[in-house]
Write a protein that binds this DNA or RNA. Structure first.
Lengths: 188, 188
DNA sequence: ATTTTATGAACGAACGTTCAATCAATATAT
DNA sequence: ATATATTGATTGAACGTTCGTTCATAAAAT
């Protein structure tokens, strides 16, 4: 039995999902409120009962995606307790990419035009910086001579892999990840 | 003394430059023809004497940028004849990034929403694939065991470095590039 | 005099947003 | 239990704005 609040939350979720789908496909500016409403099977006007405006829907998508990623990060991290630090990080990032593909696509397509989203990007950049620092710490523990530069480089590699995977679903990200991990094991 | 054809070409160039500047800053959809006309100091209607429409301006920007990059690629390549293959490639790409920053920003911001630009991206992707193959060949010559996978990885790294540099002008791309080159020298 | 260059008002379409209206559901009164 | 009142959910036409594009008109050049 669905209460009113539950139905409301359900519709909210539907709009967030549909918005994410269309924004990540065609871009934020090129996607109209009307298109989202039609795709979600909700009337144009009703959208404004859930979100004050288009930007607020985007904001909600960002927040939802961010907490989703945070949760998945913890969860995947726990499932890889046995693995060494760097391998765990790499595998974790690959998992996140696969699981939240649309969200990452949206992120990557919006991060260049910061006019729209400086405020929204802020907390995500923070989170990314945190992960990068964790990687740096791991590299230092393992005994790298230039952990900071190595972390910068590894971060670039991971970001590049992500871009290529987001651009092309058939990109062999698992193979590349395995190869990368193997290189770090050898270097150690 | 400027001939008519020269003045025309000059105005065309101005519009291409201004378009590139604004598109790369605020995005294609979010930039209006009016904004470009005002910034370039050319009247709204006159733009249609140079380009049939907004999309055609973007197309011209792409073509211009592509041949620019091709020319710069050759030129920089020649200025680095003494360097070993991989180092030359890496330095070359860094040079291209610095010299054509706005164009790369536009490229990176548009490549996710392929609806607009599948046709325009095609030839550029081709060019990128060519560079990647050249890197692969170099790696094979140098004697890498998995040249294909290594090339895939190196390409991801370079792309990631590019993204980070495009997002943040203060990104120490020269340092990272030097560090990357150093790693390849050691591995050899 | 004729052609080319240049202008910005005007046009239709599409956008984000608002709002009067209808519909459904629940509460209240009889 | 039925009828009535009240509240909230839902709709899409309508509004004002901005967009890409066109066009009558004027200025400049030939």
């Amino acid at each position: 039995m669905a209460s009113i609040a539950e139905k409301r939350e359900q519709s909210r979720q539907l709009l967030i999902e549909t918005g994410l789908k269309l924004f990540s496909q065609k871009g934020f500016e090129a996607t109209s409120i009307r298109a989202i409403a039609k795709e979600a099977g909700i009337s144009l006007g009703l959208m404004y009962n859930y979100f004050p405006g288009k930007t607020d829907l985007l904001r909600a998508i960002f927040q939802e995606g961010q907490s989703d990623i945070e949760a998945t990060f913890e969860q995947v991290q726990e499932s890889m307790v046995g693995l060494p630090g760097i391998e765990r990080h790499i595998r974790n990032i690959v998992s996140l990419l696969k699981e939240k593909r649309e969200f990452w696509r949206l992120l990557h397509s919006l991060r260049m035009q910061s006019e729209i989203v400086t405020e929204m990007m802020g907390s995500i950049e923070q989170q990314v910086a945190y992960i990068q620092q964790m990687i740096g710490n791991n590299l230092k523990e393992v005994g790298y001579q230039n952990p900071a530069e190595e972390a910068l480089l590894l971060f670039a590699t991971l970001d590049g892999m992500a871009s290529h995977y987001l651009l092309d679903p058939s990109y062999p990200i698992d193979d590349v990840a395995s190869y990368l991990i193997q290189k770090y094991k050898k270097a150690q």
